[in-house]
Design a protein around this nucleic acid. Structure first.
Lengths: 284, 284
DNA sequence: AATTTATTTTGTCTAGGACAAATAAAACTT
DNA sequence: AAGTTTTATTTGTCCTAGACAAAATAAATT
């Protein structure tokens, strides 16, 4: 049995939200310990994680949280069929995904190495690596991957790109593009793919990685003299303040600095500050 | 001006703690917006971050939170002098730290490459990389590094070890040791060093990375059939439940599986379950 | 079909108190 | 003097129930 703080950490759903879901939707239904505090069962946590994944895919709490286990499974399956229908997928990708979901990391690495050698870094990132990343995310959303499997895969993908970039070598000169994600955004692969493309086209980068407070981005941009700040937002970025953050960033950065944003989390955004531009990997 | 949620994210101090510090120690002293909600200035956030670093070093809130800016600076300086007195340090390390804190990444990489070639991976990790990591942490704790500088350094160190490991290649066969950190622990370098030493001695590993829920560790250990689970805890692991977590882990893992724990966060621990063993990098 | 306006949904924040785990200090024993 | 147990202090997490605004959807208008 787990306390609310543990559930918050393991599911990424805040205490406040957990309590208010209980009041509004009748789920979760924690028991109480002798202190009167909520205690959650492992099953409820698992269901919360499944709900979380569906929310990340764009569903709304009111339609998902009250659902029973069965209905939830059905929804996840529908999603799975929708997203991962093998008919319209490249057979090479299907093979990679099979290797990934079977956990055969050495074979996956070998296959990736071969594709990298054939296609060159830029095409590899755009045509192979990015779709594979997307597929992993969708497998995960559909509940076809355990959390630990997703961890392992992501780690290996990160390592693979790191090694590939180290072969190209870092372009000389001052960095032109600063990369990072805001606090609360843990996904680094989008940044890494962007960095690989930039490096491969001869532009020096400064990758701050994930979870960088806004004022540190400003300081880093000023110090390093970059001309562009690139931020990545995945679908799971729940913070409701992206627009405010971007406005603040645009205001505090030196005038000449452009802001690029990308990732699944930016689709819903409208009315951006003038210096902010939505970028895709292809347009780098 | 920033809301309490933002401050929580950027400082890692929970809302509840922020409110209770205000009540008990008279700091922080946020203003209020028109909704009656707390708003924190950038200066207060900076001071909170400095306080956080001192707490990570083992200071207690009652002695640190009420301090004025001046006293805080003084304490940080004393700490800096204490931890990083150059007299008792290897000149090679001093040079590396200089390169690191000056932000000259290419030069740092070159120096690391040279030392790696000279010493071999195991000695390099133990005698160069680990002390450098520690020094970076201490520079950061003493306020000598900006957050973004620490981010950049850490990223490059991770990348460097990843590349070094990829040269050694992954040992064949089933993994023997599973590595990971529990939710709330973001530092991956300890794991990575352990992994490098294991790989270099021919033992296959399975690195789950950071922030892995406990039940996922159990599942992963069962599926992969490892004989050891290795967890890393840095000084900033504030979760008060390490012992409970370890007890639960020991109970749920297969009997034959040993648990290794390491890192700065385990020094304070006593009365561990019988299958749990405190390990240092040297003893791997 | 594209804007504007109304309605619903949703997450974050507020208050002060309660409690136990963790740590430090004191008392005791060997 | 060093180790162990007992007492006191410190500290973080959790509780309740309500309020409010931003985001998303539905409805109405141009």
């Amino acid at each position: 049995m787990f306390a609310i703080g543990t559930v918050e950490r393991d599911t990424g759903i805040s205490r406040d939200t957990l309590r208010i879901w209980e009041r509004r939707y009748g789920f979760p239904t924690p028991g109480r310990n002798n202190k009167g505090e909520r205690v959650y069962s492992a099953e409820q946590i698992q269901r919360l994680q499944r709900i979380r994944r569906l929310l990340d895919q764009g569903f709304r709490p009111g339609k998902v949280v009250p659902l029973e286990d069965e209905a939830l499974n059905k929804l996840a399956n529908t999603l799975h069929d929708l997203l991962l229908s093998p008919t319209d997928m490249d057979p090479t990708h299907i093979r990679l995904i099979d290797l990934a979901s079977s956990g055969d990391i050495p074979a996956l690495n070998a296959a990736l190495e071969q594709l990298l050698a054939q296609e060159g870094l830029s095409s590899f990132v755009l045509d192979t690596f990015a779709p594979l990343t997307k597929a992993v995310g969708e497998l995960w959303a559909a509940g076809r991957l355990q959390i630990f499997e997703e961890h392992i895969l992501t780690r290996h993908l990160v390592r693979f790109l790191d090694v590939a970039m180290s072969r190209v070598g870092h372009p000389p000169g001052n960095p032109e593009v600063l990369l990072g994600t805001l606090p609360g955004e843990p996904h680094a692969l989008g940044l890494l793919m962007a960095e690989a493309l930039l490096i491969n086209s001869g532009r020096a980068t400064l990758n701050l990685g994930t979870d960088v407070p806004l004022d540190e981005i400003v300081t880093a941009a000023e110090r390093s003299g970059v001309s562009t700040v690139a931020l990545s937002f995945s679908g799971c970025y729940t913070r409701n303040t992206i627009r405010d953050d971007l406005e603040e960033l645009a205001e505090r950065l030196p005038r000449a600095v452009r802001i690029w944003i990308g990732g699944d989390g930016v689709r819903r955004l409208r009315r951006l500050p003038p210096s902010v531009e939505i970028m895709s990997l292809e347009s780098i």
